[in-house]
Amino acid sequence: MKVLHVITGLAAGGAEQQLRSLLPHLGVRSEVAVLTGRGVVADAIERTGVPVHYAGMRGNRDLRAVGRLARLMRSRRYDVVHTHLYRACVYGRLAARLANVPAIVATEHSIGCEHIEGRRLTHPIRALYLASERLGHLTVAVSPSVADRLARWGVHRSRIVVIPNGVDGTAFGFDAALRRRTRKRLGLADDAFVIGGVGRLEPGKRFDLLVEAMPSLEPAVLLLVGSGSCEPRLRELARAAGADRRVIFAGESLDVRAMLSAMDVLAAPSAEETFGLAVVEALACGLPVLYDTCPAIDDLPPGSAPGARRVAPDRLAAELSALVARPPGRLAPPDALRLYEIRRQAGQLESLYLRLLGAVPTEEYR
């Protein structure tokens, strides 16, 4: 079986990292097509021997990318096209239909109640998404919460399947030696209490709440892992708070395990998430987690992840202060993480591909 994964970009975001982690565990021939740019994740994927094709899309209205994708799909004769993220789903599904690909699947990583991929949802955006959804065969929701949102949009339940994101628990296990090396590289003292934030530096992640809390959390250090449009504002907030020397902007990192090992707690104040991959990875690394929204945890039975606590934004600074005063140390990863084992995810996707290829009449699409 030959599968082409189409994704909007390959910078170090959650969906991009998820694709990179998934590819080695899929028992199919995989290739990747990216609409815009290269990005550090593209380089990492290519180093594993998986081909990455570039559509050269220059803007949201660059319809030439559809033609390039369709020609790629025809020439390489993929059995399945699997799209990821909003623009890739819109353009990738259209290209796959034009190229007569037998099975077209999309994974919905980023649909929120009010935003999608960090952009406010509007009627035209929703209408375009629904029109393109009908060009595919199934949409994978990364959590039951996402499945419910899709259904409220108007996607029929029969066209939605829930397959949660996957995490390789062994790949994120805590490593004391890695902690020491990473802290040394970042200029962090061995005994410093490090509050971590992982994700795009965009408004929806609300990392400004962490920066603004730093004056009351002395001598703790804030380590932000990611990049985005909010970085200049966050740096200015740190300077205004007199905490710029205690806020470290690490930028994008492919070695999330190293960064998590260097932390003492993960704070995830985002008000809207589709899954909460950073939270699950942090729990796998033995970190206590304070979060506002995380379907990956909220969809579990109560008490399944005792290391993760939901905290209202107005209580975040106080809860962090209590942890700084009495560091909890490393925790055992919760057993519930086995539900998000990446090999389980890969097996479910492979079964889905096979089911679609068996169910779709070949003559209808060839």
Rank of each mutant, 00 (worst) to 15 (best):
V3M: 10
L4Q: 11
V6A: 12
G9K: 15
L10E: 05
A15G: 11
L26A: 07
R29E: 15
A33D: 10
T36A: 15
G37C: 11
G39F: 02
V40G: 13
A42I: 09
V50G: 01
M57N: 00
M57W: 14
L69K: 05
R74F: 06
R77Y: 04
R77G: 00
Y78A: 12
Y78I: 01
V81P: 01
R87G: 12
A95M: 11
R119C: 08
L121P: 08
T122W: 05
P124T: 14
R126C: 14
A127V: 09
L130T: 10
G136H: 09
T139Y: 01
A141N: 04
V146H: 03
R149P: 02
F172S: 00
R181H: 09
R181G: 02
L186V: 06
A192D: 12
I195W: 08
G199V: 13
L201E: 07
G204C: 08
G204N: 10
F207P: 06
E212H: 12
V221M: 03
G226Q: 06
R233E: 14
A240R: 14
D244G: 05
F249K: 05
G251K: 13
E252S: 15
V256C: 06
M259G: 06
A262T: 05
A262V: 06
P269R: 08
E273T: 03
V280T: 02
A284E: 02
C285A: 15
T293V: 10
L300P: 00
P301K: 01
P306C: 09
A308G: 06
L320D: 01
L323H: 03
L323C: 05
P327W: 01
L331V: 10
L331D: 12
L331Q: 15
P333K: 05
L337G: 11
R338C: 14
G347S: 12
E350W: 13
L352Y: 03
R355F: 08
R355A: 15
G358P: 04
T362N: 04
E363N: 10
